[in-house]
Design a protein around this nucleic acid. Structure first.
Lengths: 154, 154
DNA sequence: GATGAAAGACTTTCTTC
DNA sequence: GAAGAAAGTCTTTCATC
């Protein structure tokens, strides 16, 4: 995982349809070498998948909310995970530190359907409360930054 | 945007490296027709980009936090947006309803660097407070669900 | 809007360094 | 690990329905 690998990842995050010839040119490698490095990045699991970014509004998922869940027991086990994963509107679920125990990201067509999802969440074993933050506008959502030196900011 | 388009989007979300022949087979179309539909989905902006999903831990971004920002003024304008976008560790930024005005998602290598980012955030005009939720473990992060009927849940 | 086929471009593999 | 080239596959376009 050197700077060339990071540069390849950044290029692929921006446009994974680039041919290896262009990818190689962008990072100063031949097409064959670029291909070999990308193959290894996939093999090692650094690249988890190649995917498309879909506009939520265009598929009628215009409502976005973050919900913090309170519980009366440890929620870090597979049953909780599976119960959350079974709700397709939940896009992310995280165990967190702080007064909540879980944080989930939910997308629905309407606030009415958000309410329906919250009802399902409340039915999960151990859940004792929810706090919902509704998103009014998304400034941006972008790929993980892989290139900048994090020490820069200090 | 019919069920076939949604099926194509679901296939591409799962694996955007599939050849059009396989894509067509999965949804009951010829390779040519699948290609034509995907082309239009890109043209209309339904598909915003083709990208790779990178494992944060593999590129030394193992610390994830959600931060709620309080402010003493309306933060929904471009200057605020640009100030947040200039911080590469911020992966998402949303204007929200509720007691906070903004919610941001931050990834850093260490909690020390999370602290450095919070300091930068505090320096943005109008920011009067932050509340940080540190993620201990991510259950899952998955593509937006595009196929399920949202009425199912009610 | 879908199909099947042709032309061109790209991926993948292999040999060499 | 990188480069260059060959073989095979895929993308893209087009004529047709």
């Amino acid at each position: 995982m050197d700077d060339t690998d990071r540069a390849l990842l950044a290029e692929l995050q921006a446009d994974a349809t680039l041919p290896y010839s262009a990818l190689g040119k962008a990072v100063g490698l031949s097409a064959g070498s670029a291909h070999e490095r990308v193959r290894k990045l996939r093999e090692r699991g650094v690249i988890r998948r190649t995917t498309v970014d879909v506009d939520p509004a265009a598929v009628d998922r215009g409502v976005l909310a973050f919900v913090m869940l309170q519980s009366n027991a440890w929620m870090g086990d597979p049953p909780t995970r599976d119960a959350l994963a079974a709700i397709p509107e939940i896009q992310e679920a995280h165990i967190v530190a702080g007064s909540s125990s879980l944080l989930v990201k939910i997308r629905t067509p309407t606030t009415e359907q958000l309410q329906a999802v919250l009802r399902r969440v409340f039915d999960i074993d151990g859940v004792t409360g929810t706090e919902t933050i509704v998103v009014l506008e998304t400034f941006f959502e972008r790929p993980l930054n892989v290139t900048d030196d994090p020490d820069r900011a200090r």
